[in-house]
Design a protein around this nucleic acid. Structure first.
Length: 278
DNA sequence: GACCAGGAATTGG
DNA sequence: CCAATTCATGGT
């Protein structure tokens, strides 16, 4: 079961990192688990990765890329210390240790969360794989077939997109596809969070929640606090004594409560609330 | 055929 | 400005 090449392939030591928790927390869609390896496609890159304790083995990507993609250089001990004061977050951190925020490609992230409205993770994964198959480029990696994700501007055929069962979201994907490019996303990264979010919300189909997901999962704004139905439940039940608040106020609550680490608090709350399924 | 799924856009006060 | 309503689709 151990790959003989393991000893020769790149590896990294990591602390406070759990690959499965991180991938299975609804922030990223294009990966599959096969023979204890996660095969990951992100834009034009295909690589595989496996965790054994504090060791990460991987193939198809440089150590630098892996460190960046999984935010391994983030000072996690500091984040943990800062969030430990909160009993609810502390519990979730203990239950799902090493859950981290991924640094993924903004364009791919945007399409993923455009697909997310009124949908579910399994279906979003299917949408994304279908878009890659119809608009991306085939790649063979370790004898397996994959498709890279298309670049901005390349999802330009409504009839083909319709085959991917994105439904009413098609007009949003086509609309955004025609309006953005990689440079545009790069500029967002250099802006303050509020400004970048404003720019994102100018695009069709992107409201506050989707803009916050893009901000948090792909632009490095850890102060973003996306609020979906799961977060609404989690916050209402744990911090508001069951009292309802509009989504906009919940997002403001999160940012005020946890400041620059609101995104991490969100990720733990979301993961915890979705899995314990009360 | 109802019911649900990580919302967005529009309308009415 | 805020809340309520409408829109809209594939999977189970």
């Amino acid at each position: 079961m151990h790959d003989k090449k393991s000893a020769l392939m790149p590896s990294l030591s990591c602390t406070d990192f759990n690959l499965s928790h991180t991938l299975d927390s609804g922030q990223f869609f294009r990966y599959i688990l096969h023979d204890s390896w996660y095969y990951i496609v992100t834009r034009g890159k295909v690589f595989c990765i496996r965790q054994e304790g504090n060791k990460l083995f991987f193939d198809g990507a440089s150590p630098k890329f892996v460190r960046h993609f999984f935010a391994l250089d983030e000072n996690y001990a500091r984040i943990k210390r800062a969030l430990q004061h909160d009993a609810v977050i502390a519990y979730a951190m203990k239950k799902y240790p090493g859950l981290r925020l991924i640094n993924q490609d903004p364009w791919e992230c945007t399409v993923g969360f455009l697909c997310s409205q009124m949908s579910n993770i399994k279906k979003i994964k299917g949408n994304m794989d279908c878009i890659a198959a119809l608009f991306g480029t085939p790649v063979v990696f370790r004898g397996k077939a994959f498709f890279t994700f298309p670049s901005p501007g390349e999802i330009d055929d409504a009839a083909k997109l319709k085959k991917c069962a994105v439904g009413f979201r098609a007009k949003y994907i086509l609309g955004v596809n025609a309006r953005v490019d990689d440079k545009w996303f790069a500029r967002l990264r250099a802006m303050p969070y509020e400004k970048a979010k404003e720019e994102l919300m100018e695009l069709p189909g992107i409201g506050e929640k989707v803009a916050d997901c893009i901000s948090l999962f792909s632009l490095g704004f850890t102060e973003a606090f996306p609020v979906d139905v799961w977060m609404e439940r989690a916050v209402k039940e744990t911090y508001l004594k069951g009292k309802k608040l509009p989504l906009k106020k919940l997002a403001a609550f999160g940012r005020k409560q946890w400041g620059p680490l609101a995104g991490y608090a969100q990720q733990y709350l979301y993961h915890w609330r979705r899995l314990h399924n009360k």
